[in-house]
Amino acid sequence: MTHPMLRIQPVSDDLYEVSDLEIRAFSSLRIWVYDLEATGLDTTRERVTQIAGLPIEGGKILEEEAFVQLVHPGEGVEISKEVEELTGITLEKLKDAPPFPDAWRDCQAAARGSAFWIGQSVFEFDIPLLETELARHGLPTTLPATLDSVVLATALLGEPEGRWSTSALIQRFQVNIEGLRRHDALDDVKILARILLPMMQIIREDHDDRVFLPPDRPLSIKRHPPVKA
């Protein structure tokens, strides 16, 4: 599930549209920023290998309440060399990690009390991947209300030349990422949280602290570029 009051409409292989969302008092809310790492990018068959999240509340990043957990992907699951190099996560590191259901339960518990969740490219990757994992383990596929920071960035900053990737947002807001490692779930969450703070300032100062996507004027979002086979 995405945010229950948000409508998503696929348009083409390159675009989807979102509409019909209103979040008020945005910067005062407790928001759970999250990220997943996985064995690959195919959300229909890959496995989650790491889950991380932390809350932002009242415009402050609460790093002391951060959650991070490696996840055992299941017996017989492989991780390619490319993915190992990208994430730094090897099967050896995962051998004593809990299975997905335990890690997911703990993440939900850590996120409890948040008005909604937010993540980067979650509508295209994290949410379908989570739904696959939940279904695989016979768990209810009910997910918390979730927003995609790509959608939020497009709503606030307009359509970029490419798409509002993490790199583009880091550059746009001159976010300091020193000491943080991309594609480590917790560090990615910290980076996104630092990106969200100036976005929240824009929402507060220029949009009356409200995010509003009208039902009749959908916002076009460029999809993530196709993954090379």
Binding site: A111, G113, S114, F116
Partner: peptide
């Protein structure tokens, strides 16, 4: 006082 108990238990903010 608390309508939506199932969601409250599951941590879903509804």
């Amino acid at each position: 006082p608390l309508d939506g108990t199932k969601e409250f238990i599951q941590g879903i903010p509804e």
